[in-house]
């Protein structure tokens, strides 16, 4: 009696009284249902089968089940896909105390470009360096 495509009414749980269709047979005791109820496993003892059937294949998605239910004039809710939560804008309370002076923004100071440091080469003063300098001055004269 309870096969893929069979329309049932759920008897127990918070979905009791709602119509569902069998999507897949898991076990001799359990069945996967979908429709007005949540898409989940359900025991056969908590279902009351009806004479109606739907054109559904094993393991069909929720969207196909919803289109199949339209033939019975039953609207099945399709939930929206979950989106990322956006941060709520925070409310700023107005202070009833004395008005505080407004903060003045400091002027921006442009940073100077740092020149690359160059090591100064300091030549040691020796006899050779002195002789060279003396020769140079003598030639110039």
């Amino acid at each position: 009696m309870i096969d893929v495509g069979r329309v049932c009414v759920k008897i127990a749980g918070r979905d009791a009284g709602k119509k569902a269709v069998v999507v897949e047979k898991i076990d001799s005791n359990f069945v996967l249902i979908d429709g007005e109820t949540r898409r989940r496993k359900c025991s056969i003892n908590h279902l009351e089968p009806l004479n109606k059937t739907l054109d559904i294949k094993k393991g069909d998605a929720h969207a196909k089940v919803a289109t199949a239910f339209k033939t019975l004039n039953i609207d099945v809710k399709t939930t929206k896909p979950k989106t990322k939560k956006t941060e709520r804008p925070r409310r700023v309370r107005k202070s009833h105390s004395k008005e505080k002076p407004k903060k003045v923004a400091k002027p921006k100071v442009e940073k100077k470009e740092e020149k690359p440091k160059v090591k100064k080469v300091v030549k040691k003063v020796t006899k050779k360096t002195v002789k060279k300098v003396v020769k140079k001055t003598a030639t110039k004269k």
Binding site: V9, I11, A12, A16, G17, E48, L50
Partner: peptide, 13 residues
């Protein structure tokens, strides 16, 4: 509730 829902479903058929 189960008995009530079963009778309602069978009456609808």
């Amino acid at each position: 509730t189960r008995k009530l829902l079963i009778t309602k479903a069978r009456e609808e058929e």
